[in-house]
């Protein structure tokens, strides 16, 4: 493997300073379940890895005022079990439970998943459905930015892991009249890339019949995690019955552009999966919002 040095800073400030002093030759490592392979295959280069997983508080999951805060180094195993995530962001708990295998979930982190910038990343799809923000730390300080602004193209994040790092994610907890759900289809039930994954979050009005807000995130149907805005619109200002859900799912299938892929499946099949999985996710989220 390429790197010569591996350091474990004890604070975010120390990590960012170490990156700055390495002038692009350093790189943040979190769980490393993707990065170690990328380094072995020479898809990414670094002379020094800066491991942020032992920074105090960075893997914490907590409520803070009106937000749920998920530390960047929280693992998928933590997310799938944590009562706050299971209760207040089920879409994220469900997505986390699908990632890799138990061995991967014990090590892989949410920030690693996001910075790796794959359009199919289960963590990113769930966070997009939750309308999450990420806190980025670099030499100029810390800043909250919308998750949706972080993706450039497959494998390329707006977060430059040679110069900056994600420290946390935040989103509004699911309140009453809200529901969320994650659906995924893959060749097998573990250790398999999703052919399609869908995360949704729904907020109902007081009489539980109409949607006040809907977010639908789908992967991998575009170069970046995709938000199905037409499908979302199809659900607003109308009775949320089966027909509405069917029409929204059809709209999602129409606006998604999956490609035919030897790894995944043909595009016609995958478009149909978008329709079916969106319908299932919406139905479950609406049902849970109705309580």
């Amino acid at each position: 493997m390429a790197y010569d040095d591996y350091v474990t800073p004890s604070s975010v400030e120390e990590a960012v300073a170490a990156l700055a002093s390495l002038r692009g030759a350093g790189r943040i490592i979190s769980g490393g379940t993707d990065l170690i392979l990328q380094l072995q295959h020479r898809e990414r280069e670094a002379s020094c890895l800066i491991d942020v997983t032992t920074i105090r508080g960075l893997s914490e999951i907590k409520r803070d005022g009106s937000f749920v805060i998920v530390g960047a180094a929280a693992t998928f195993a933590q997310l799938e079990r944590h009562p706050i995530i299971r209760g207040q962001a089920p879409v994220l708990a469900q997505a986390a439970s699908w990632v890799g295998s138990p061995q991967i979930r014990n090590v892989g982190t949410l920030a690693g998943n996001v910075v790796n910038a794959q359009p199919a990343a289960d963590g990113s799809i769930a966070l997009l459905a939750l309308d999450a923000e990420a806190e980025i730390a670099n030499l100029t300080g810390r800043q909250w930015v919308p998750l949706s602004s972080l993706f450039v193209s497959p494998g390329v994040s707006r977060v430059d892991a040679t110069m900056e790092m994600i420290t946390a994610f935040r989103f509004r907890p699911q309140a009453s009249l809200e529901g969320s759900a994650f659906e995924r289809f893959a060749r097998r039930k573990a250790l398999a890339l999703p052919l399609i994954n869908v995360g949704v979050r729904v907020q109902l009005d007081a009489d539980r019949s109409r949607a006040r807000a809907v977010r639908i995130a789908i992967g991998p149907v575009a170069p970046v995690p995709f938000r199905a805005c037409e499908a979302e619109k199809a659900l607003l200002d109308r009775e949320l019955d089966e027909a509405a859900v069917r029409e929204a799912a059809a709209a999602a299938a129409l606006e998604s552009k999956p490609r035919s892929s030897l790894l995944r499946a043909g595009k016609e099949y995958r478009v149909e999966l978008v329709r079916v999985l969106t319908q299932r996710a919406l139905s479950r989220a609406i049902q849970s919002a109705r309580g």
Partner: peptide, 20 residues
Amino acid sequence: TVLVDGLPVNSCLYPAVKAQ
């Protein structure tokens, strides 16, 4: 697979430094 603090991990992907 080995256990690190009781949790299964893939030791082939796990930098030894993390076992500190």
